[in-house]
């Protein structure tokens, strides 16, 4: 009698566990298939509407180093105020008559850059705004172990804040120093071309506030955009060309001292 009951219980246990395992297995086989079917539809939809390809032009011949873009960027994107976190910053290069190059960017240029070299020693001086270059072959995206940073279909390098594990490998991989570890969210942070603005038809905050129009934002695929006109009119160059990252931020008037 007793053994019989145990056997029954046992059988029941096996039945339930078999059902559970079977169900899980079946579900896990169906799930990826579901995903496949879905993704096909999505791609088809996207192909119809022509995606923009966002890029930026920076005109060194217009930048006055007022730092408005840096301030606006910090405000718009909730970047911590401390002087170690920048999505964009301005560098002032001063080439001295003796050939030395002095580069400065106190607090990223917030509050306006001030010339620290006496006039009589200066050979030439210019301002270089820096930001994420939104590389076509982005080393940071290549390095991210989990797929938490990526190039969006419209060509912007973005970070998935809910997925980033905070390993800093992308920061090491970025040749431009454009990434930082956000001390509040504890994930990698960087310029997004103000993705929340451009997707609503607005300009990035830095472009919006630039008093001299030294930054030109636009769609590289739109042959009538200001950006394309800027690139046609000026000889443009990208930063660290030798690294072959194919940036989508183009500089006019880039001097060889800039690194």
């Amino acid at each position: 009698m007793g053994t019989n009951r145990i056997n029954k219980d046992r059988r029941k246990f096996f039945q339930t566990s078999a059902a559970l395992i079977g169900g899980t297995l079946a579900f896990s086989i169906i799930k990826p298939l579901e995903l496949l079917a879905q993704s096909k539809n999505e791609v088809a939809k996207d192909e119809k509407t022509e995606q923009p390809l966002w890029g930026m032009g920076v005109d060194i011949e217009k930048c006055i180093g007022c730092g408005k873009c840096v301030e606006a960027c910090k405000l718009e994107n909730n970047v911590p105020r401390e002087p170690f976190y920048f999505r964009t910053w301005i560098e002032q290069y001063t080439v001295k008559k003796d050939g030395d190059v002095k580069i400065e960017s106190p607090n990223g240029g917030i509050g306006g850059l001030k010339q620290s070299v006496p006039d009589e020693d200066i050979f030439k001086s210019f301002m270089v705004p820096k930001l994420c270059n939104h590389c076509t072959d982005a080393p940071c995206v290549q390095a991210c172990p989990v797929g938490a940073t990526y190039i969006s279909p419209d060509g912007v390098v973005l970070v998935d804040e809910t997925y980033c594990i905070g390993c800093s490998y992308c920061i090491q991989a970025c040749p431009y120093g454009a990434r930082f570890m956000n001390p509040v969210t504890k994930v990698a942070d960087k310029c997004t071309f103000c993705y929340h603005r451009i997707s609503k038809g607005l300009e990035p905050a830095c472009v919006e506030v630039c008093p001299t129009d030294a930054r030109i934002f636009g769609n590289l695929r739109d042959k009538k955009s200001d950006l394309v006109a800027f690139m046609q009119k000026h000889p443009t160059e990208v930063l660290k060309r030798h690294l072959n990252t194919s940036p989508r931020v183009f500089y006019n008037g880039l001097s060889s001292e800039v690194r």
Binding site: L75, N77, L158, T162
Partner: peptide
Amino acid sequence: GHYRANSIDDNKARPLFY
């Protein structure tokens, strides 16, 4: 691609100040 597609919308949904 090799990322969470919904993250694009997360990035779009950030608050706008300017």
